[in-house]
């Protein structure tokens, strides 16, 4: 399984194994990563799974689609590498991905 490292708001690292086909958000929830809330359950409706893709991974993960881009308008502190983690599907290419959790409430 691809390894995904989440860095939470306190700077703590959470190294997780997430099955291919799940979303990055589901990986965070299953491993109890603090700060990824996902109150809409991954429907791209709420922005509470907001995180920043690590600089090194920007090209691999890619950009949000139109719906995600619009939903990100609701997020706190949107930055160029902001993504909703519910919309990133885990693939073999994402093994080693580093995600920085954003301030969600």
């Amino acid at each position: 399984m691809p390894k995904i490292t989440f860095i939470d708001l306190d700077g703590q690292q959470h190294v997780t194994d997430v099955a291919i086909g799940l979303s990055v958000m589901e990986g965070a929830i299953a491993n109890g990563v603090p700060g990824i809330l996902a109150i809409c359950g991954g429907s791209c409706a709420c922005s509470t799974c907001h995180a920043y893709v690590d600089d090194a991974w920007a090209g691999v993960v890619g950009a949000p689609n139109e719906i995600e881009d619009a939903t990100l308008e609701l997020a706190n502190d949107r930055k160029p590498l902001s993504r909703l983690t519910c919309q990133i599907v885990v693939t073999p290419e994402l093994d080693g991905l580093v995600i920085h959790v954003a301030k969600n409430d």
């Binding site: 139109e66 719906i67 881009d69 619009a70 939903t71 308008e73 609701l74």
Partner: peptide, 9 residues
């Protein structure tokens, strides 16, 4: 029209 929804909110 997701962007319009977000602005409407």
């Amino acid at each position: 029209r997701p962007a319009e929804h977000m602005v409407s909110r």
